[in-house]
Amino acid sequence: MNLSDVKNKLPAENIVAGEDEGMARAIGGVVASDLMSDVLVSAKEDCLLVTSLASEQMIRTADLVGAVGVLVVNGKPLPPSLVSLARSLAMPLLRTRMPKYETCLALAKAGCAEQGEGA
């Protein structure tokens, strides 16, 4: 399961692709949260960050925890500064119109594993 699969199955639009293979990196788990501290604590390497908070700090947080990408739910408008930060940090950015809960269900159904043990 990688970001390209997520994009096709939800569906989601791909705003920033990141590096060449950014969309192809395997997703190691999913963290759905709008709180930076929660993300910092619970996110594992290579997780997909699902959030309804369209802020630059979410991109930074994702970068700091080594997430594979950020998926913004509810079709939230993305400020240009957020998109350009994602680009400069090579952080893949996707957006879906689905609400957060439905997004998580769809991700699970599509085969996205929950986070590894202990999360």
């Binding site: 709008d34 709180l35 930076m36 501290s37 929660d38 604590v41 908070l53 802020s55 700090q57 979410m58 947080t61």
Partner: peptide
Amino acid sequence: SLGFGAGLG
């Protein structure tokens, strides 16, 4: 609302 202030810092 910006995603901070969870009291976990």
